[in-house]
């Protein structure tokens, strides 16, 4: 069957790779010990993206993070896309592969966003089937990431933690715990993030994500947090991260900063802060 270990990333900080940081990572990476790439940016046939990735993979364990497989889609998975993922994973042999509890493609249109799902028996069955297909085609275990959500569904019948726990149990996949998403979704859905983390199946967690979010309000004045990945990790998310590690022990931890990408020293400072918390907990 699949590798029993959650993955081969070190329990240390990593960053989402941006080409503008290539030279800094080659000369001045510490404390960053691994990198994450978005799979869809490395599905060309050659050129600079693949050459840089080949070079980086000689120095760093790489986590391949898919953002477009549409695992929660009502339709069948896009087998062309799954084949592209397999091609990438076969040549790169990454330390981890992860995707999202979300959908992004429907009726042949790719919407370029991680769209929300109702937590029902039908969704559960479909997601488990899709994960089974992905793990079989790739020949490796995957991690599934908890989403950031702005709406809920009247038809939902599972709590999100119970839903993810059941997906992991049935499919054998691991989980990617995005602590910023926990904060964003819990505030947006009037739930308690501390309780969410206390109930989360930490033994299945192979990787943690940290990132920034924006703050807004809905038309009724209720808090509406936006998962924007364009700013530093907030104080409340660092506090939830400490709580997570107290429950999980040290875990590979990614700083995600995808928009308004900062200069290297600022990103490295975020990674240093995560490293300090991991070391204090170890």
């Amino acid at each position: 069957m699949f590798d029993a270990a959650p993955n081969h990333l070190p329990p240390a900080p990593g960053v989402g790779y941006k080409p503008q940081h290539f030279q800094a990572l080659i000369s001045d990476a510490a404390p960053v010990r691994w990198l994450e790439i978005h799979a869809e940016n490395y599905m060309g046939h050659g050129g600079r993206p693949l050459a840089q990735l080949r070079h980086l993979a000689e120095r760093f364990p790489i986590s391949v993070h898919g953002v477009a497989l549409s695992i929660g889609g009502e339709a069948d998975l896009d087998t062309d896309h799954l084949t592209r993922l397999k091609t990438l994973c076969d040549w790169l042999n990454p330390a981890s592969f992860s995707e999202h509890l979300a959908w992004s493609t429907h009726d042949g249109a790719f919407l370029n966003d991680l769209l929300p799902l109702p937590y029902t028996v039908q969704t559960l069955t479909r997601v488990v089937d899709h994960i089974d297909q992905v793990q079989t085609v790739l020949g490796r275990k995957m991690l599934l990431e908890n989403p950031s959500t702005y709406v809920a569904f009247a038809e939902t019948s599972y709590d999100e933690v119970d839903f993810l726990t059941e997906i992991a149990r049935r499919s054998g996949c691991g989980l990617l715990l995005d602590v910023n998403n926990v904060h964003v979704s819990c505030i947006n859905n009037a739930r308690d993030p501390v309780d969410y983390l206390n109930r989360f199946p930490m033994n299945a967690v192979g990787e943690i994500h940290l990132g920034g979010h924006d703050e807004d309000r809905d038309e009724n004045g209720a808090s509406l947090l936006i998962d924007a990945h364009g700013s530093p990790v907030t104080v409340s998310v660092w506090a939830l991260y400490r709580q997570t590690l107290s429950l999980s022990g040290p875990r590979p931890t990614l700083i995600e900063w995808d928009n308004d990408v900062p200069d290297w020293p600022l990103l490295r400072a975020e990674a240093e802060r995560a490293a300090g918390i991991i070391e204090a907990m170890a």
């Binding site: 109702p118 709406v151 809920a152 569904f153 009247a154 038809e155 947006n188 859905n189 009037a190 809905d218 009724n220 209720a222």
Partner: peptide, 9 residues
């Protein structure tokens, strides 16, 4: 229909 906020609206 059925897409709601935290208070069900």
């Amino acid at each position: 229909a059925g897409v709601i906020g935290p208070t069900g609206q």
